[in-house]
Design a protein around this nucleic acid. Sequence first.
DNA 1: TAGATTGTTAATCGATTAACAATC
DNA 2: TAGATTGTTAATCGATTAACAATC
Lengths: 215, 215
Amino acid sequence: LDKKEKKVPEVVIRRMPRYYRYLKELLKSGQTRISSGALSKKMGVTASQIRQDFSYFGGFGQQGYGYNIEYVTEEIETLFGVVSEFKAIIIGAGNLGHALVNYQGIINRRVSIVAMFDVSTDKIGTSISGVPVLSMSEMDRFTRENCVDIAILTLPKDDVSDVVDRLKRCGIKGFWNFTSVELETDEDVSVENVHLTDSIMTLAYKINNQRKDNQ
Amino acid sequence: LDKKEKKVPEVVIRRMPRYYRYLKELLKSGQTRISSGALSKKMGVTASQIRQDFSYFGGFGQQGYGYNIEYVTEEIETLFGVVSEFKAIIIGAGNLGHALVNYQGIINRRVSIVAMFDVSTDKIGTSISGVPVLSMSEMDRFTRENCVDIAILTLPKDDVSDVVDRLKRCGIKGFWNFTSVELETDEDVSVENVHLTDSIMTLAYKINNQRKDNQ
DNA sequence: TAGATTGTTAATCGATTAACAATC
DNA sequence: TAGATTGTTAATCGATTAACAATC
């Protein structure tokens, strides 16, 4: 609505959770304020970048004082959904799905997993850490009736595109994608990919290269 | 050694696994060659970027012909460790560690997990999917004797810095870090972070913002 | 040979850093 | 008020895109 507001670049968005982690640590240690200069030294980035990044969200500081740590963390929490109540379902009750149900990082960020879905008749009807495992045929109805916001994809890749189409029609707003399938982001669906295979390949490249450098 | 060789930018390195995924799919479908133009349409990037990226590794194509898909995938496999045999250990036999032992993405990329380490006396002495769970006190000796390359960190954050110091001294070359602790990359250790909490925060931001945009 | 398409050089665009006026 | 430190504007740097000569 405000024409002056520029779109926040993706790189900036991706740096914010890292600031948040550092500021949370400082808060825990009892510190109440910090300047961009001091934070930049701790984090190994420039003070300019911190100020520039924060200014995309309107700026969190005060001239001559710096940043009030509690205030900044609260602002980031509002912007980055740490205080919102998102409802999520996990598609695929395999090893990874199992690991994510119990993941504290999700729970702390107020994303509550309300159901898991799987094709295996062994799993359907059971519950994992108190979360029921339901049949894939119940997915559409459940998603609509419970106003689910987020779908966490940990299913085999051949089934992904069909499942995603169905979930989009049921009003899912965001996909947390752990499969190797590329999902298209469109206007009313957000996608966050966690490509573990890409990540391990990158690590392998770095290791191979590091060895070369040292020779 | 070759002075002309420029260091490959991080952004380029991170795009390579994605090219690899697409080319592997094409290969599976029976296609043998593709031009940068055709690939760019499939992937939603510019043809210039593909050619520029590939040229950092010396170029994989041929004028007038394009890219031989099998050749390019093989080159990427060599560069990105898909054909190398890395030995890995997992520190922390919790849910996530458990999920990663069985993860096909790792197994396909020839990273073999040779042991897991944990503090829990219930787990020590057992084995998960054929991989033994050992005591943390055995970690240093085991790592040295077995020439372990990669440590996968899925342990509680308070123990991370101590464990990392020990592993560095034992000659670990790369860390695949799933904890929220920031690891410093130095000259002879590579680090690849998978910050799941950052990822879910980013998704939350995108969802919150998408709603705003549509209003 | 003619057409196609690369690898590379040059131009553009966007992101990072530096500088400083505004102000707490 | 004087010192500190922000938010913002301008300068620099690096990454992306465009153009094209080289060549299969």
